[in-house]
Simulated assay, not measured.
Amino acid sequence: MARIRVVDEGVDLHNPTLVEGFPGAGLVGKIVADHMVDAMDLTHYANVHSDSFDQVAVYDRGTPELASPVRLYADDRGEVLVLQSDIPVEADAAEEFAAAFAPWLEDNATPVFIAGLPTKQRSSTPELFGVGSGAGVDTVGDAGLARPPERGVVSGPAGSLLGHAVENGLDAVGLIVECDPRFPDPVAAKTLLERGIEPIIGRDVSVGMLESQAEKIQQAKERLARRMQDGGDASSEATPLRMFQ
């Protein structure tokens, strides 16, 4: 079961959009979430606990205080939430978490889930397209996002959560972006922020810092990417279904 423990009672939520940042293909969601927390100076709002998560604690540079590995951050208006995760989630755990976390989402926020589409060859600007469930379909259209160019499937945490939304008629948005299948991809994250997240939340998320720190981000994330590869297929990613056509 999933439990949300609020750590800052001073935050008032006002129908927020929640951006999910579980590590996935290209670590795009992870990079986006980390950048939004820093660039928008978000407040640590709550910890997210699940029996299906690895039971670990995380620490950070310059502070002795331990933290939960999965956390929610909020802006000062209570209109944007970001789920920041420092751990990958296995496939079975993702399904259990989705079923437990979805009721809280339904009552508190409209989610935007992120999936990387591993692509060996692409143009300098990664392709991005949007999908949705319920009112999320209108959100995708209003944001001017491209439609999927082919059939595909979303797996991992994002896939489980989107699947739960479809099965239960809930509002949700999925953003799918081409990414490097082997390494962290800050270029894909930048594309997703500028052309996906910003139009949906109606806010500017400065990407200048992301551009200037792209090399540093890649080096810092490579160890997590290797951990995920060693742990099996647990990434949130999109896969074309060409074999079925």
Rank of each mutant, 00 (worst) to 15 (best):
A146G: 10
Q121T: 12
G29R: 03
I87G: 02
G10S: 11
P186C: 11
E198V: 03
S235A: 14
D51A: 07
K120G: 02
D92R: 11
E167L: 15
A33G: 07
P88M: 01
K190D: 09
R223D: 15
L210P: 02
V82K: 03
Y45P: 01
I217V: 13
A100H: 00
L42P: 07
R223L: 13
V37T: 07
G196M: 07
D92H: 12
T43G: 05
P157F: 10
R71I: 12
G169L: 15
R122H: 10
D233L: 10
G24F: 04
G152T: 00
L66R: 08
A100N: 08
P126W: 04
E95A: 14
K30A: 13
G231W: 12
S133D: 11
D142V: 12
A189T: 12
S160D: 01
D60Q: 10
G196C: 06
K120M: 10
D86G: 08
G26T: 03
I87T: 06
N168C: 03
R151S: 15
L170G: 03
G144H: 08
A115R: 04
G156P: 03
L192P: 06
E65Q: 11
K216M: 11
A67V: 13
L105I: 01
V48R: 00
R151F: 14
F183C: 05
E222G: 01
V11S: 03
R61I: 14
A109D: 02
T239N: 06
V173T: 13
A25L: 02
M36Q: 00
Q121D: 15
E95K: 14
I176M: 05
T139C: 07
P118Q: 05
L175P: 02
R182K: 11
N108D: 00
P199W: 13
E178K: 09
L18T: 02
F53C: 04
G169P: 08
L145N: 09
D76H: 13
V56I: 15
E167D: 11
H164V: 02
R61A: 15
L128G: 04
E20P: 01
L66E: 11
G24I: 03
M40G: 00
D92E: 15
L72A: 07
Q218Y: 12
V58H: 09
E178T: 07
P157H: 10
T17L: 09
V28I: 15
N108M: 00
D92V: 06
V154T: 14
D54G: 14
P240C: 06
L81N: 05
K216I: 11
G163A: 09
E79V: 06
A225M: 15
M243Y: 13
S124W: 13
V205M: 05
V166D: 12
P184I: 08
E90W: 04
G26W: 01
L13A: 01
D51C: 02
P118T: 04
G144D: 13
G141F: 08
Y73T: 07
R3G: 05
V80L: 12
V154K: 05
A146K: 09
I176Y: 06
T63R: 14
N15P: 01
T125Y: 07
L192S: 06
R226S: 11
G141A: 12
Q84A: 11
V131T: 13
V205N: 04
A189H: 12
D107W: 04
